[in-house]
Simulated scan of single mutants.
Amino acid sequence: REAIALAVGAVDACAYCQAAHTVSAKVAGFTLEETVAIRRGTPGDDAKLEALVQVAREIAGEVGEASDASWDAAVAQGWTDTELAEVFVHVAVNLYTNYFNHYARTEIDVPAVPGIDS
């Protein structure tokens, strides 16, 4: 869930969500470096996680669409169709919170995170 939130927050450029989910992801066991890599869409040596992040990024960035190639790659890495369908729910929830934080101009009350372009 945190990887999906980080991916969607990056696609939506939601500074608050990227910062808040970096904190949560670190609690879940990710390192700061891994959270930055997930936000970039390149989570490293974990092909299964990378496939999931790619599907989530496409759903967020392509108005609900995920390419057959990305979906098939995720299935090849062991994700089930049911699990991938659940990704849509997680993406939708994160889109809502990202958009609301943009609208409300939510102040970042957690540690800021390094940019993904640097």
Results as ranks from 00 to 15, higher is better:
110 V>S: 03
19 A>R: 11
5 A>Y: 03
98 N>P: 04
77 Q>T: 14
56 A>R: 01
102 H>G: 08
67 S>T: 07
22 T>M: 02
98 N>E: 03
77 Q>R: 15
61 G>T: 06
11 V>K: 07
46 D>R: 12
70 S>F: 04
87 V>Q: 08
75 V>C: 11
33 E>T: 05
21 H>F: 04
37 A>F: 05
62 E>S: 09
42 T>V: 07
30 F>N: 06
43 P>Q: 06
102 H>W: 01
28 A>Q: 13
20 A>C: 14
91 V>H: 00
49 L>D: 12
67 S>Q: 01
38 I>D: 08
101 N>W: 01
68 D>T: 04
57 R>I: 10
64 G>A: 04
97 T>Y: 02
43 P>M: 10
79 W>Q: 00
115 G>Y: 10
113 V>W: 14
13 A>P: 00
14 C>V: 06
13 A>K: 11
76 A>N: 10
72 D>R: 13
111 P>N: 00
16 Y>R: 08
56 A>T: 00
57 R>A: 13
34 E>P: 13
10 A>F: 08
7 A>H: 03
97 T>D: 04
25 A>P: 06
88 F>C: 15
7 A>G: 09
104 A>C: 14
8 V>E: 11
50 E>H: 13
3 A>S: 13
118 S>Q: 13
2 E>F: 11
78 G>V: 15
83 E>H: 15
70 S>P: 03
63 V>R: 10
49 L>V: 11
62 E>R: 12
85 A>S: 15
50 E>A: 15
15 A>V: 11
22 T>R: 06
